[in-house]
Design a binder for these strands. Structure first.
Length: 415
RNA sequence: GGAGGGGUGGGAGAGUGGCUAAAUCCAGCAGACUGUAAAUCUGCCCGCUUCGGCGUACGGUGGUUCGAAUCCACCCCCCUCCA
């Protein structure tokens, strides 16, 4: 008894991707009878996307899996302007070179989730800088400015919030929503794109695009948003002790990524399995029903599946094995962050802080000293209560295992 | 251009001459309890340190003072109203 006629909406609905849509029935009808093209825009403000964007990537994934064509739109042009949504302050300007470098660095992630190519259902990646930077100011104002009223724009949350907080919003940022609306219109004309998806905070921007398509092109385009990602305890998802959970492996290792999922709160496991793995929904429901400490098995599966999607099955297995040896056997497992120390430096006495800093377990010597005072630092699982240098006598089978707390571990190897 | 208000640590937000590395809250880290969970309780939360201290820090630059986030001058930026 599927609620929708199209596979696309059925999958999204049962996996919890749908927050609101402009005309879900209409979208459903079209998705059921033809191949749709849909897009999501991604900002290029950092070298990597982080898990906060993963829900959007998964939407593109399912769009393709259910027989449609996804477009990953890189916001090269819009990033120059800066999306004011959810920001209290104007953000720092990025140079063109920085934006280009960010896009180049971000791109790879999509290839893990989407099948690109030239076929009718192959994913497309494009960059809105391609058309936005060519727009002439006067032409743009005449052709598009007439379709937007200030009255309306002032009612959008992104604008309203700034005004209420008396936080400045520049005209530049104010134009962001026009540019995003223009993107939709442009993508419709380029490749018949009729669907824009995004986070619930993008609703206003998306609706603008839908309306622009109706006014300029006389077509009904569709908008679809995902729920805001928060954990059951109300925190924003995607921040860990070390900062953001990046998708690029060079910024956040597959092991850390695996750990991130492994540490999901109990109450979130079901939702995370549905959204961030591609396990059949029956399996998701079965795992989600596990109670008490059995839920840990579900968390491991979540970690395995989510990591496999992004970094590949091998990396996921490796991370799982490292975690198993580290946490279940308490061993010094391969795969943990490793610091190579020369034998001479060990014999001479190596500051414990050097490897801890290098492996990012601590941010400063002072933090390391505090951890020692708090009894949080362990060398080969024995607490270090007084600061002392590491020496070759600490080597166990050629390795020293350093731990901060229960979760952060690193190895020192002689080499 | 004029008048008034404001710029403080990751965020919010106190502080109006020394007791201030700067209240409080949020976020973060660690310890205890556990299940690598949540909740709770406890400690920490600028850097360096031979643990005695030292160095930076309250928009910027100068100044007053034994001593300034706090007072003065100039500059930069933001908000509100007026032109």
């Amino acid at each position: 008894m599927a609620a929708w006629k199209s596979d696309f909406l059925n999958v999204l609905a049962e996996r919890g991707f749908i927050h609101q849509g402009t005309n879900l029935q209409g979208l459903d009808a079209r998705a059921a009878k033809e191949t749709l093209t849909g897009y999501i825009g991604f900002d290029a403000t950092a070298r990597s996307l982080h898990v906060g964007s993963l829900i959007q990537i998964m939407m593109l994934y399912w769009l393709q899996q259910t027989g449609h064509r996804p477009i990953a739109l890189m916001g090269g042009g819009t990033t120059k302007v800066g999306d004011p949504t959810g920001k209290d302050h104007q953000r720092a300007m990025l140079t063109d070179a920085e934006i280009d470098a960010n896009i180049a660095s971000i791109k790879g992630v999509f290839e893990k989730f989407l099948r690109f190519g030239a076929g009718p259902k192959d994913a497309i990646m494009t960059n809105n800088d391609e058309w936005l930077s060519k727009l002439g100011y006067v032409e743009f104002l005449r052709d598009y400015g007439t379709h937007f009223t200030i009255n309306r724009m002032l009612t959008f949350d992104s604008v309203k919030l700034r005004l209420e907080r008396e936080s400045p919003m520049t005209f530049l940022e104010f134009n962001y929503m026009l540019m995003q609306a223009y993107d939709f219109h442009e993508l419709y004309n380029r490749c018949g794109c009729l669907l824009q998806m995004g986070g619930s905070d993008q609703w206003g921007n998306i609706v603008n695009g839908v309306e622009l398509c109706r006014r300029k092109d006389g077509v009904e385009a569709f908008g679809l948003t995902t729920p805001l990602l928060t954990t059951a305890s109300g925190k924003k998802m995607g921040k860990t002790e070390a900062g953001a959970v990046w998708l690029n492996a060079d910024l956040f290792s597959p092991y850390d990524y695996w750990q991130f999922w492994r540490n999901t709160e109990d109450a979130d496991v079901a939702v995370m399995l549905a959204r961030f793995t591609v396990l059949p929904i029956e399996e998701v429901n079965r795992l989600a029903a596990l109670g008490g400490s059995e839920i840990n098995e579900a968390k491991k599966i979540l970690a395995n599946e989510a990591t496999a999607l992004l970094h590949g099955r091998d990396a996921a297995s490796e991370a799982a094995e490292t975690a198993r040896r580290t946490f279940e056997e308490g061993a010094a497992a391969e795969g943990l962050p490793t610091f190579i120390a020369s034998m001479e430096s060990l014999k001479a006495g190596l500051s414990v802080f050097a490897p801890l800093l290098e492996t990012a377990l601590i941010a400063s010597n002072g933090e390391g000293r505090r951890h020692i005072k708090a009894g949080a630092l362990r060398v080969n699982d024995a607490p270090m209560t007084e600061e002392r240098p590491l020496s070759d006598a600490d080597l166990v089978d050629g390795v020293i295992k350093l731990s901060i707390g229960k979760k952060k571990h690193a190895l020192v190897k002689a080499g």
